[in-house]
Design a protein around this nucleic acid. Structure first.
Lengths: 182, 182
DNA sequence: GGGTACATGTAACTCGTTACATGATTCC
DNA sequence: GGAATCATGTAACGAGTTACATGTACCC
């Protein structure tokens, strides 16, 4: 499916950017909530995209002799990106989740231990939820306008908040079952 | 992390089972909601687990000459599984989601086209949600008891329902933003 | 001078998907 | 006899992670 290709293309399409900064986008803030890749995946993909003619780069000298490659999207890349953006994709299965897998087999875990695990998950997800809420309220006082890059960021932050909230709701539902059963 | 190992071990731990049936578990119903693997991953892993002494198999002849391997868990495998079940794992980043990725770059999609994509997602997730609800109500009239395999199934079904519901909520939130902005 | 961040790459490995390959059983 | 399902495997490839490797720039 080459999803990484489009993730990178989408970022380069905004404005010329280096591989280093693309990597940073994947690790920080909003984007990490639905896509992640580290630099060892990014650099080879950039090379491939250059070979395929979807992006091109210009070497910039920073200071004395530090070379960086500033990537821009080509017409070909832009066309590919726009086509991909309009794709109406089926929802797939996976969405792998190790804690859910563990929970599926929780009949083998002593109830008290499983309750501890649930509480630990609640703590971690609540922390994440609060962090996302904080980023949201400190960044946006209003819904950004349609057509701005800010709106994408805003919607995805909201999506991450809703997801974390739902996860916490599920964990609490499990806790309720286990607390009632004692 | 060898998560597939524990997914398989967990299933074999319930009762002796063939690779074919393990594969089926990964594709059907509840389990596919948080874990998926197809047979080309399952058979090699079973071989590996046998070599490592975590599982063992007995060859069964079905009918005239159809051989199947019925796998059981060994003491070693049981120990490994129980240890893994008690692990309190950190929540990771990823949870990759192609539609979210596309949405992140939706400032490049004409508003009407993006609204169509959103509606399509709503349709697909609502269908999935309704299916899960139906499975839930047709399978369980009450919360299963703690310590039963049914409870794991029940909790994970509920988790999947909550997740789908949250996704639909998010999609509707996006639709609201786009409909207000016109 | 030292630490942190900037900047770019490769290598080895694991995990996951799609396709290839084969044969038996059951039911119509 | 043919189709669907049962049953088990391998091969080739693509995606993702961890570790290795190197050098610059900036700030204290």
């Amino acid at each position: 499916m080459r999803s990484l290709k489009y993730a990178i293309l989408g970022l380069i399409n905004r404005e010329p950017i280096t591989g280093y900064d693309i990597s940073k986008e994947f690790s920080h803030e909003t984007m990490a909530n639905f896509w992640y890749a580290n630099h060892s995946q990014v650099y080879p993909e950039l090379k491939k995209l250059t070979d395929e003619g979807s992006v091109e780069f210009e070497v910039i000298i920073q200071g004395e002799k530090l070379k960086k490659k500033l990537y821009s999207i080509t017409e070909k890349g832009k066309k590919e990106l726009m086509e991909w953006l309009l794709t109406d994709e089926q929802i797939g299965p996976t969405q792998k989740d190790i804690f859910r897998l563990r929970s599926y087999f929780s009949d083998n875990i002593p109830a008290n231990d499983y309750i501890s695990l649930l509480n630990s998950q609640v703590r971690m997800h609540t922390q994440r939820f609060n962090y996302l809420k904080e980023v949201m309220s400190s960044t946006y006082s209003d819904t950004p306008d349609i057509g701005t890059t800010q709106l994408g960021d805003y919607m995805l932050l909201e999506g991450a908040i809703i997801r974390e909230n739902a996860y916490i709701m599920w964990l609490n539902r499990c806790l309720k079952i286990y607390n009632k059963g004692r």
